[in-house]
Simulated scan of single mutants.
Amino acid sequence: MARIALIGASGQAGTRILKELSDRGHAVTAIARNPEKIAALPNVSAKAGDVADKDALAKLLAGHDAVVSAVRFADCDPRVLIDAVRAAGVKRYLVVGGAGSLEVAPGQRLIDQPDFPQAYRPEAGKGAEFLAVLKQEKELDWTFLSPSAEFVPGERTGKFRLGKDALLVGEQGSRISFEDYAVALVDEIERPAHSRQRFTVGY
């Protein structure tokens, strides 16, 4: 059992990651702006937290084995989050990434394609910036897990593929359920294989 702090525990990805961690017996401090929205699950302690308040966040994160960030990129500053994890003395930091920075061909990112939806561009751009900041990070043992292009509610099948920096495309296009994404992320917590790397998951 590991002690995990999960920031953004009430969001779409966060709720699935929280359930997966709880189901596997990990002790989770589930952090959200509105903790009353966090599901009541075994081994879960809900806490109110503000991603803009570095010092208060660092206090919440202290004493954990790993921190998972499942916060919308548009709602946070990567440097504040990274500084909070550092200040808390936690070495492992896993980030729920975005698909926009994945490559559709060598050197060609998904976000830069002409048909990339305009509505998703601001969030995807912030996600790419977050990854760029992480790549400069010298202290933390970080991992950035990018979902496939379609990141949607679905089933927990436990069957998926992993990749590195290239967008994964299968018979149903490029997609992954929140539930199977959570499996891949918690697998990475339990059996680290992508230290200081970005990787991706898809069908």
Score class of each variant (00 low, 15 high):
198 R>Y: 14
131 L>N: 01
72 R>G: 07
117 P>S: 00
189 I>F: 08
25 G>D: 09
181 Y>I: 01
125 G>T: 11
172 Q>G: 15
100 G>F: 00
78 P>R: 08
15 T>N: 10
99 A>Y: 12
176 I>F: 06
190 E>K: 14
117 P>D: 00
166 A>K: 14
138 K>Y: 02
102 L>F: 00
117 P>E: 00
21 L>M: 11
39 A>Q: 15
15 T>L: 02
106 P>C: 06
48 A>W: 06
174 S>T: 11
53 D>S: 15
79 R>E: 14
29 T>Q: 12
103 E>M: 06
23 D>G: 03
74 A>D: 06
125 G>D: 04
16 R>D: 00
37 K>N: 12
37 K>E: 04
46 A>M: 10
185 L>Q: 10
41 L>S: 11
16 R>N: 05
7 I>M: 06
59 K>H: 11
193 A>C: 04
66 A>P: 07
126 K>E: 12
24 R>H: 07
8 G>I: 02
76 C>E: 05
27 A>F: 10
22 S>N: 10
117 P>V: 07
116 F>Q: 07
183 V>N: 08
97 G>F: 02
40 A>S: 15
145 L>I: 08
6 L>G: 06
15 T>Y: 02
54 K>E: 09
138 K>P: 01
173 G>P: 11
179 E>C: 02
35 P>R: 15
138 K>L: 00
90 V>L: 04
93 Y>E: 05
82 I>V: 10
170 G>N: 13
68 V>P: 09
111 I>K: 07
89 G>R: 02
